[in-house]
Amino acid sequence: MWRELIARLYKGAKFAAPASDEEIDQVERRLGQPVPDALRRLLHEADGVRDEYGSGLVWSTQEIIEQNAEFRASSDFAALYMSFDQLMFMADNGGGDLFAYVRVPAGRPDDVFVWDHETDERKCVAQSLRDYLERRAGDDGGDGWYH
């Protein structure tokens, strides 16, 4: 389902091989947060998807682990930004802004948020992973859809 949707929305999309249950479970163990169901299903079909320009439409399990761990552990980031502990970054725009799920018990489990790297603003931009992919595709790769 996810591969077909993404291939239809993004003509130049590049898909990685599917992720295993163990790789997805490792994300949960390393970050201490559950992987949202829709993201889990997408990762089962492709362990990461890049657009035609190389931006991460959806990161691989390893990228999710590495990027989130780096943001959470950086003392430089801690001095500049609010905590990243409640976020699970899973994609980028290629220019510094990142897309994430908010992973808190009373949070909005399916909503996708954008983190603006210049202002530290975090705002909801889509109500689901599908909504995020469709909105992002509708802007021809620009940033206007979430600003």
Rank of each mutant, 00 (worst) to 15 (best):
A46T: 04
Y81N: 12
S128K: 10
P18C: 08
W59F: 02
L42E: 02
F84Q: 02
D85S: 00
W2K: 08
H44G: 10
E23W: 03
E66A: 12
A7W: 02
D85E: 09
V104W: 11
E70D: 12
G138P: 03
T61C: 13
K123V: 15
A13N: 08
E52C: 00
A16I: 02
W2V: 01
Y146L: 14
F71N: 00
G54E: 05
L43V: 08
N68M: 11
A7M: 03
E28G: 11
M1S: 14
R41N: 02
A69P: 04
P36T: 09
M82N: 14
P34D: 07
A73S: 14
V102P: 04
E118Q: 15
I24K: 11
F77W: 11
E66Y: 05
V35S: 00
Q86P: 04
Q86F: 15
V49S: 04
E52S: 03
P109W: 03
L133M: 07
L57C: 01
D25F: 06
F84L: 02
T119A: 14
R29W: 06
G94V: 10
L133H: 00
R108K: 11
G56P: 02
G138N: 08
Y53E: 07
L80C: 15
A100C: 15
A38E: 11
Q86E: 15
V35D: 03
P36K: 08
W2Q: 04
G54H: 10
V114L: 11
S83Q: 09
R8D: 06
R50L: 13
A16W: 04
P34L: 09
F84T: 05
G142S: 05
D143N: 00
G56N: 09
I64Q: 01
R30S: 14
D51H: 00
E63S: 11
A78R: 13
D25Y: 02
S55Q: 02
G141A: 10
Q67T: 03
R108M: 09
L80W: 12
Y53W: 14
L98C: 08
G95W: 15
L31P: 09
A17V: 14
Q67D: 07
R40T: 05
T61R: 03
L31A: 13
A69R: 13
G95I: 14
Y10R: 00
G56C: 08
L5V: 02
W115I: 08
P36I: 01
E52W: 07
S74P: 06
A7C: 01
G48A: 00
N68W: 07
D111A: 10
W145H: 07
N93D: 15
E66I: 03
L42A: 04
A16S: 15
Q127G: 11
D110V: 04
H117Y: 14
K123W: 15
Q33H: 11
G32Y: 06
G107E: 13
G144M: 12
R136L: 09
E45R: 12
A137S: 12
A19F: 04
W115R: 07
E118H: 11
D21A: 12
T119L: 15
Q62S: 09
K14M: 01
L42I: 06
L57S: 01
D51K: 05
L39M: 01
